[in-house]
Simulated scan of single mutants.
Amino acid sequence: MTQTLSSTPADTAPARPSPHHALKVLSVHHWTDQLFSFTLERPEDFRFRSGEFVMIGLPGEDGSKPVLRAYSIASPHWAEELEFFSIKVPDGPLTSRLQKIQPGDTVLMGKKPTGTLVLDALTGGERLWLIGTGTGLAPWLSVARDPDTYSRFGQVIVCHTVRQVADLAYRDFFTAGIHDDPLVGDEANAHLTYYPTVTRERFETPGRITDRIRSGDVFADLRLPIGFSPNTDRVMLCGSMAMIKEAGELLETYGLKEGSNAEPGDYVLERAFVG
């Protein structure tokens, strides 16, 4: 009797599962020639906390390794789609290609979200400041639509600093659209304040947010006591490293202490950024 040999060697190792999801692009919105947003389908088993980031990328060209960068998830944890907010870097290894995606294309996404811009990393307080520059606004789109945010804080202030007025992406959303949100619309209408600043054009609140903190203008504009208090204020920072460093030092002078997932504190920051 002739023995039939398997065509597959017995010692062949099973294929490793991919560390990435390959997800379909659902929509793309170009805000300016330097800023765009896109949404991806959400895997059924993908879970994250509002404010976390994940690796986003595209397959490498000519068979090379995928190119991935950290992106904050701009959609809240309960959303059916995943939204991201990105800059366009002409010579960027990723964004030079990512900015050309169209609905129906495929984008890679890591399977493990992480990050410190989460409510769990803050101790309790009365007022939550979400301070960002440029695309550092992305996590605030997530946190500001999380019902837990309003159950923990009586006031939520979204501060967004950009160079040009046109760079104030999502301005209409924070001033009006969020009030129609199915979960937090009423809470946002009553408790959320949007505070944009512009550095290179005429604007009613000009300059860098750190300068307006230092001068006291932001507190005067919002009719709040001058300065931050460890007893009432909690702060999240995301955006340019220069702003994060400067703002963090300012917060420390007011007595606020940096927190983390392991040890919650008065303020948190995110060092991951897109390039």
Results as ranks from 00 to 15, higher is better:
E44R: 14
M241C: 07
P43M: 10
R223H: 13
T95S: 15
L98H: 11
G124P: 11
R47P: 00
A188E: 00
L117S: 04
P264I: 05
H191W: 00
T197D: 07
E252C: 04
K65S: 15
L250Q: 06
P59V: 13
Q99H: 14
T133M: 09
V218P: 03
H160P: 09
P147Q: 10
M1T: 15
L122M: 05
L108V: 12
Q164N: 11
T175I: 06
M1Q: 14
D217N: 11
G239P: 09
L250R: 00
R16N: 13
H20I: 12
A138H: 06
R145W: 03
A242E: 14
G239R: 07
V118S: 01
T199Y: 02
Q99V: 14
G110C: 03
A166Q: 09
K112A: 10
R69T: 07
L98C: 12
T161C: 07
P264E: 05
H179A: 12
G216R: 00
G124N: 15
R152W: 03
V198E: 05
D91P: 10
I244A: 06
P206M: 09
D181P: 03
F153P: 01
P59G: 10
P182T: 00
T232W: 03
R214V: 12
F48D: 07
V158S: 01
E61Y: 06
D146T: 08
G92R: 14
A10P: 00
L5T: 08
R171M: 07
T197I: 08
R234T: 05
L222T: 06
Q155D: 08
D45A: 09
E44Q: 14
L128S: 08
T205F: 14
L251K: 02
E201D: 13
L269G: 02
L82K: 06
L58Y: 14
